[in-house]
Design a protein around this nucleic acid. Structure first.
Lengths: 214, 214
DNA sequence: ACCTGAACACCGTTCAAGT
DNA sequence: ACCTGAACACCGTTCAAGT
């Protein structure tokens, strides 16, 4: 309860700088109150005055990272705007590997995050999606985006310890017939960046269909 | 390196039972080696023989939870099978709130997980999706599903501390025009279960379109 | 107004020792 | 074969005290 809304002092910004540097260098799990304090040459307790608690620190980091994501040119076509936002999110996550974990750890209630939601709403409206459908479709798209970022960051899309071929060799053909039938196409997953582009194109087609029916 | 592939002893199952009970009662973050050991009336060190390490424990939990998810009736139509799988995942996550965090924490390389992927492949094939497109579409759908489960578990879709109305009142209309224009439709988000059904219907339409073009 | 010191109740894991 | 005890290097947070 001490410093729920800490004063906008410069010291707070220094704390966030240190936490972000730590996250960039060693991952989000290295961001402990003690480690951040050590980086500032100060006692852990000194931080509590500025960020309230560790959850407060994480919330502040989310706000900062989201604020860095560029908004698309409002003059561009709506589908180009969606593509630009997807690229912006992906670039942000690749630069800041801790972003997806932060987004999942804390609900987004920050103006910096709503700014992005606003741009999504505008794109869906300009696509011709009926107003009552817009919030749900925005959540559909952003849920996919979040799942993608989290998967990439957590290594779910990565190769794992075994190659696809080795892994498949261990699957009994009787129980996994489609895996074996698709063998050729499982071996060479396309570059992830291209896959994300293709997925976004599919979602854009989905949105277009929604607009056509309204 | 000690017990990477521990013997299939009964003691191991008891360790997993205890960990799962702890996760169900107090959340995944309560699952510590020390707490699991205490529940078994044993020293933390005793666990290492059976699960190797904490990561090993988590991997084993993922495998167990995924194995519990029912597969759809292979005789049903492909879209009904997809709907059934979505419901199965959602039910599993609601029963086991730690599932999404586990799925994101550890890449799925387990046969219990691939069993579900296999059923997805089969549904997409039966929908008429061209073979080269199937793996990507499976990842699109499962990435959305994962994002959904993680969002629901982390409270991203929850109400937050402010009501939608209060939150919107703090957004400057000049910067958030679409939020304000959509006010009526933001106030009453539909039940999340119904929203997931609608999302799955949209993804099914997307898949149908892919099939039609092949 | 801002920071420190000591303490409390926790973590995962290693190593040597017991039975 | 299975478990224990002691130790190491960590966590977030509270409280009283310093300047």
């Amino acid at each position: 309860v001490a410093a729920q809304t800490p004063s906008p002092d410069g010291r707070r910004e220094e704390v966030l700088d240190a936490a972000l540097a730590l996250a960039d260098e060693q991952g989000l799990e290295a961001v402990s109150m003690r480690a951040v304090a050590a980086r500032l040459g100060v006692t852990p307790m000194a931080l509590y005055r500025h960020v309230g608690t560790k959850a407060g620190l994480l919330d502040a980091l989310v706000a900062r990272l989201l604020a860095e994501i560029p908004l698309p040119d409002p003059g561009a076509a709506w589908d180009e705007r969606l593509r630009a936002m997807a690229r912006g999110l992906r670039d942000a996550a690749q630069l800041r590997p801790s972003l997806p974990a932060l987004l999942l750890a804390r609900p987004v209630v920050d103006p910096a995050g709503l700014r992005i939601v606003e741009a999504m709403y505008a794109a869906l409206r300009d696509a011709g999606v009926p107003a009552p459908e817009i919030p749900r479709l925005e959540r559909l798209v952003s849920t996919f985006a979040l799942g993608w970022l989290a998967s990439e960051a957590a290594g779910r899309l990565g190769p794992g310890e075994l190659s696809p071929r080795e892994r498949r060799a261990r699957l009994p053909p009787a129980e996994f017939p489609v895996h074996h039938a698709l063998a050729r196409h499982l071996d060479a997953p396309s570059a992830w960046d291209e896959e994300l582009d293709a997925d976004v194109d599919d979602l854009i087609a989905l949105i277009r269909a929604k607009a056509g029916s309204g």
